[in-house]
Design a binder for these strands. Structure first.
Length: 470
RNA sequence: GGCCCCUUCGUCUAGUGGUAAGGACGUCGGCCUCUCACGCCGAAAACAUGGGUUCGAGUCCCGUAGGGGUCACCA
């Protein structure tokens, strides 16, 4: 490998960009960026029945959102059919591959026969290994694989891996319609694109020996491999749609920060030391390496993702959060774009919520007219006769405030003095007021809340609450 | 079933023959306090199992169990 490594992410566009794929992309991207190398995006769309254009777009979207930009591509395998054909022909010429005229039905019969005879797995009989060519008949092309011996390679994360050739058969590499099969397309592409390290999910370890054999047949130097452990669901089964939220897009919609996603994903399987959990992009670009990737599968933990998201919300300013908060509000039917209160809202709620979606729900009542329904329990406890004098006193005081720019400090001082003069704790005053202002017992500091709601709306809400008491 | 890979608190992990097995999420308790959070302090919680090797094993070897992956004219 040169000092400018070339890596790639090669998804097949058969659905959304999911968590596992995103992490694979991320690790490749990090390694390439960290070493000043090249990151290539390649779409493996040779399975025409499952590939869709929407999926291609979803992959682009997801990667862009996460900030994983690519230097080359997107290449598409369906644009490169000539290249595969040419490579396959080359193998046939050297007698390292051959045309196979067995039909699917025949293969199926062979399989059945072998299994019935007690074979533990099917292996192509090699019937066409020596058959003469019939250029006009439809056929697939198979590579001639060694029938004994073994292939070893040193995986960057898993260490030495050995595969016996007994378990490898003469793979089909090209279908009658000229579409390559995975193990061939990937090899031809990785070789011709000059890929130095292939980092992919460890569901591909068993393909690696076959691929190395194909590299060798083709006369190419195999790259190095890094097989990343799988991501599992709570039940230790491979993470899939039935575990719920697995697409990157879902997390964007749910109000996660892209950087939090990156931070969490990288920690799923990779660690720097015995204590660091939080990584900025700069940190990762400096510290990421394949040799610190763990070898065992990891269970996806939404709670920890939330915690990390919360952390990065805390690191963000209200200003940075305002726009994404407005997006989330829009989904709730609240048009707050450009509202000057957004920043303050984000500032006050970033410590109190885990996601931007949650923040929007909480912020909603501050932007609406009136509080809607009071929480039953809060209403019963605080909107009671004993609260009336306090609420009235505050209303009077608020009427003296300027309509804009409430002096929070002054107001707080007044409120403390007021509570003291009535010989009650501040809570006796603040809680009923809180319920009046936001409909429930939880909110930021009471004076911050008043300022947020605004003088006039606060007065209206207090009056509404007084009505309720009667 | 064959083959490949994996196995430290519930979860993510540190650990590269000698540690009181460390951190984080979550959980529980406390502090702070106008509520809710944030923050802070504290607690419970792990080396799958049986054999070796060694003066000494979470760390090395073998077996067992468990988990995952893979065995296509899918990727």
């Amino acid at each position: 490998m040169t000092d400018k490594p070339r890596l790639r992410f090669a998804p097949s566009p058969t659905g959304y960009l999911h968590i596992g794929g995103a992490r694979t992309a991320l690790f490749n991207w990090l390694y390439a960026r960290r070493h000043g190398g090249t990151f290539i995006l390649r779409i493996e769309d040779t399975d025409k029945s499952r590939s869709t254009e929407e999926s291609v777009e979803a992959i682009f979207d997801g990667m862009r959102w996460l900030g994983l930009d690519w230097d080359e591509g997107p290449y598409r395998q369906t644009d490169r059919l000539d290249i595969y054909r040419e490579h396959a022909e080359r193998l046939i010429e050297k007698d390292l591959a051959y045309r196979c005229y067995c039909t699917k039905e025949e293969i199926e019969a062979q399989r059945k026969a072998q299994l019935e005879a007690g074979a533990s797995q099917f292996r192509y009989t090699g019937r066409c290994r020596k058959r003469p060519d019939h250029p006009d008949q439809p056929c697939v092309i198979r590579v001639r694989m060694p029938q004994s011996g073994e292939t070893k390679f040193e995986d960057l994360v898993k260490g030495a891996i050995t595969t016996s050739h007994e378990t490898i058969q003469d793979e089909v590499i090209l279908r009658p319609d000229g579409i390559p099969l995975y193990n061939f397309g990937a090899v031809v592409d990785d070789a011709t694109m000059g890929i130095d390290i292939v980092a992919r999910g460890d569901d591909h370890v068993n393909n690696t020996a076959r691929q190395i054999l194909i590299y060798q047949a083709l006369g190419y130097e195999p790259p190095r491999f890094a097989h990343l452990p799988m991501i599992l669901g709570r039940d230790k089964q491979r993470l899939s749609k039935r575990h719920g939220a697995v697409s990157v897009t879902w997390y964007r919609e749910a109000g996660y920060l892209p950087h939090a996603m990156v931070n969490y994903l990288v920690r799923l399987g990779w660690s720097l030391d015995d204590k660091t959990e939080i990584f900025s992009l700069d940190d990762l670009l400096r510290d990421f390496s394949f040799d610190r990737v763990g070898q065992s599968a990891a269970i996806f933990d939404p709670d920890k993702l939330q915690w990390i998201n919360h952390h990065w919300m805390m690191e963000s300013s209200g200003r940075e959060l305002a726009a994404p908060l407005a997006e989330q509000l829009a989904k709730l039917g609240v048009d707050a774009h450009g509202d000057p209160r957004l920043e303050r809202l984000a500032e006050l709620f970033k410590a109190r919520t885990k996601t931007l979606a949650e923040m929007a729900e909480r912020a909603r009542v501050y932007l609406s007219e009136g509080v809607g329904e009071y929480q039953a329990k809060a209403k019963r406890k605080f909107l009671v006769e004993a609260s009336r004098p306090h609420l009235e006193a505050i209303r009077e005081r608020l009427e003296k405030e300027p309509p804009e720019g409430i002096d929070e400090c002054g107001l707080e001082e007044w409120m403390r003095e007021y509570a003291e003069s009535r010989s009650v704790g501040l809570g006796k005053v603040a809680q009923p007021l809180r319920v009046a202002l936001v409909g429930g017992t939880a909110s930021p500091g009471i004076c911050e809340t008043i300022a947020l709601v605004g003088r006039d709306e606060s007065i209206r809400r207090i009056e509404a609450a007084l009505q309720v008491i009667e």
